[in-house]
């Protein structure tokens, strides 16, 4: 809204907006604060803030107690790998649906999205058995495949909405200029859709990073990512709040930092490309 508001009104809305934002953010903030307290200070009643015992020991202990770098690296490989593989399969599909739509394109898209509605738990046993049988249980390749398939409908849908914003005439111009289908996608479509592809990538890295069901079901140790790492710290029964918080912070901080550095693409991506 372009109109200038009165200073008084602006002060009130600013205060209100900041209060709401802080309330939403507070649980994360409180977790991060707790991670720097001693265990005693973390459960003190009334809660301690300024007078708390600040320490870095929790991080040191979590680091020494578990192989954080391995979990971290697994998370990176699995989330980035599944996203890139998904993009490779989804870009041609989204090209087809956006630029050569048929009567059933919309139904196809809805069908793809509906495969995501199948509760993971319902097919947990068969997938588990299949992964054992194929020899990809507890491997990074296996998880990359699983998460790629899980997010593929979302990737296709997002790319489809971004591609539809690109005028078809430009692709026809490329065709007239002698570009093969491959050249058309590589030299014209993909560079033009870079912002959309970046947003799609970012969102899917986050979705894959935060995936906890399949990563826990389909791994034991070798390929376990951070979501499995954090599960091993759960249920602390009272006295390990600070360490649980430190482990949680270590699990979410990489993605939190990534998100904050790429805010613009991310905000676009978080809307799943569905609204402008």
């Amino acid at each position: 809204m372009a109109r200038a508001a009165s200073p008084r009104k602006q002060l009130i809305t600013t205060l209100a907006a900041w209060s709401v934002a802080l309330i939403i953010f507070f649980p994360v903030l409180w977790m991060i604060l707790t991670s720097f307290k001693t265990e005693a200070s973390a459960v003190a009643s009334p809660p301690e803030l300024l007078g708390a015992d600040w320490t870095l020991d929790n991080y040191a202990e979590v680091w020494s107690r578990s192989d954080y770098p391995r979990f971290f690296w697994n998370s990176v490989v699995i989330s980035v790998g599944s996203t890139l593989l998904g993009l490779a399969i989804a870009i041609p599909a989204a090209w087809s649906m956006a630029f050569v739509p048929g009567k059933r394109t919309k139904d196809l898209l809805m069908w793809m999205l509906s495969t995501k509605m199948m509760p993971a738990v319902a097919v947990m046993i068969p997938i588990y058995l299949l992964f054992q049988w194929l020899g990809i249980f507890d491997t990074r390749i296996g998880l990359i495949l699983a998460l790629m398939l899980m997010n593929l409908p979302i990737i296709i849908w997002m790319l489809y909405t971004y591609f539809k914003e690109i005028p078809g005439e430009i692709l026809e111009a490329a065709r007239m200029d002698g570009a093969s289908l491959w050249n058309e996608i590589v030299y014209v479509l993909t560079p033009m859709a870079i912002p959309g592809i970046a947003s799609t990538m970012l969102l899917n890295v986050i979705l894959a990073w935060n995936e906890a069901f399949w990563t826990i079901t389909l791994t034991t140790t070798k390929a376990a990512p951070l979501s499995a790492f954090i599960a091993s710290f759960s249920a602390p029964q009272g006295l390990f709040y600070a360490k649980l918080s430190a482990a949680s912070a270590m699990a979410i901080l990489p993605i939190l930092i990534l998100g904050w550095f790429s805010q613009k693409q991310l905000v676009r991506g978080l809307t799943f490309g569905a609204v402008k």
């Binding site: 953010f25 990073w209 599960a231 709040y241 699990a251």
Partner: peptide, 22 residues
């Protein structure tokens, strides 16, 4: 905006354990 979108970055097990315990 960064503050408001932060919960989206928190993986479900972490979110649940923050709320349950803290």
């Amino acid at each position: 905006r960064i503050l408001v979108i932060a919960p989206f970055f928190v993986m479900p097990p972490v979110a649940a354990s923050i709320w349950e315990n803290l």
